[in-house]
Amino acid sequence: MVAASKMRTAQEATLSTRPFGQLLYRMRRTATTHAPDFIHPLLATRAVRRRAVILFGTDKGLCGALNSNLFRLAMQFDPATTLFITAGKRAAQFIARTGRRLAAEFTFADSPRFAEARPIAAFARDLFLKGDVDQVLIVATRFINTLIQQPSVVEFLPIGEITGLKIPGAESDGDVAADTGEVLFEFSAETVLAYLFGHYLNIYVYRVMLEAKASEQSARMVAMQNATDSAAGLIKDLTLEYNNVRQTNITKELLEIAGGQLGND
């Protein structure tokens, strides 16, 4: 039941960061809708010639089809134009085995820490800002509940309208549109946005990590539960078989004794 307690910790961590993610998402949207004449390099949409994919796998196996589902999704990207950044040992092994280009390899612990998210976000941001890639995507497993984990592709850079990711509880567009008055930025829109984006990317990666970890622990617990169940079934069958054989032997021996006794009489 180690998996069950790890799963609970990972799930709680994921759920408790949701309000933070929602608020950050809302602020990001307010900031970008109210500062339209300001173009930040991280917002720049370019024609996609090369892209980077951040792939979040697990460190260990024994978690059902989680990784294979994820890697199937990662396979669809053209190896010639795609650079991979991996987090988790299995993801790195997969990229190496299939001969794709690996730009960097990161790890994250069982309970992901914010400090582990920062270098990943920084690496991807630098690739994008230097113009090495025109788009950064994240391929990771989204945690829905204990039984359902969904491999998904979400956009990371450029920062735009996030289409692939539904944040539960995030307000609808109407709410923001109603609020079209001027917004004051102190000191300036540039500094506030630069700070916001820096934070936004780090938190984004951190949340993806937490979700991936919660998914992994849930999938592992379910896989382990299935293994326990089928082992229990096997034991039951074998016990029945054993008892059958034993009973047959006893009956046979009794018959022999009885037969021998009859012969003596």
Partner: peptide, 19 residues
């Protein structure tokens, strides 16, 4: 405590974003 100094916010403040 804002980046531009300590500031007091009352209801019906003008929309503002800061650090």
């Amino acid at each position: 405590p804002g980046v531009a100094g300590q500031m007091g916010i009352y209801p019906r403040h003008v929309p503002l974003m800061t650090q």
